[in-house]
Amino acid sequence: MKNKSLLKRDFNYQPHIYYPNYKSSILRAPHKDKITFPSTISEVSGPVFSKDIIGQNDNNLILNFSKNNKSPIGHKILVYGTVKDQFLKPVKGALIEIWQANASGKYMHPNDKTPTAIDPNFAGCGRYITETNGSYEFFTIQPGPYPYPNRGIEWRPMHIHFSIFGESFGQRLITQMYFEGDPLIKLCPMVNSIPDDKIRKSLISKLDVSRAVSHNILAYKFDIILRGINQTYFENRKEGL
């Protein structure tokens, strides 16, 4: 039998959970220390998603909500990369779900009150299950920046939300990907809730001109690292021994 345990999470490289510059955290962030315990099967196991659930255009946000073959507004991009663990072992079969604003910075969501336009041909929702080498790719539209109420009105940098299921429920990651060169990144309190500058930068995708699929699409590379899982083998002991 395999004994598996998750690598201990290093909170020096995670955002502060209570971060008053991000106003919404004030009433929601817990104050007590989290309790750490050795991994059990409940954290090491996790839901297994089959590629059967994935439709043909699930990773193509340019097409998956378009009506009568109309293109969404904005410029097309390819976002690609790999999902690996902390030992750089590719994580295959990982479910990646993304969501984002449209080119004018508006989400297709009833709670988004930003005074900009919905794009009837763009929902901003996609998913992918990683290949054997951990790779993934999405075709989408460059999301716009947008204002939101925080300390007065502030602006979010252009970003795409990522939700990832690895093989363990304890590997679960929800994060955001930013775009190289966006001057709003350094002003963003959500980005700055991460104290370490180098690890903050790991959320910024890199422009990759060489990977441009055709002349009308830019490519951005974003690699993701999930928590590592230690494995040791042991013989089953009999009950009571």
Binding site: K84, C125, R200
Partner: peptide, 23 residues
């Protein structure tokens, strides 16, 4: 051992990506 990609908030519009039919 490499550093884990850090979390960011899921934000208020997470249903778009996680429960699109519901929203």
């Amino acid at each position: 051992i490499h550093k884990e990609t850090p979390f960011q908030t899921a934000g208020p519009f997470l249903h778009i990506g996680c429960l699109p039919n519901f929203i």
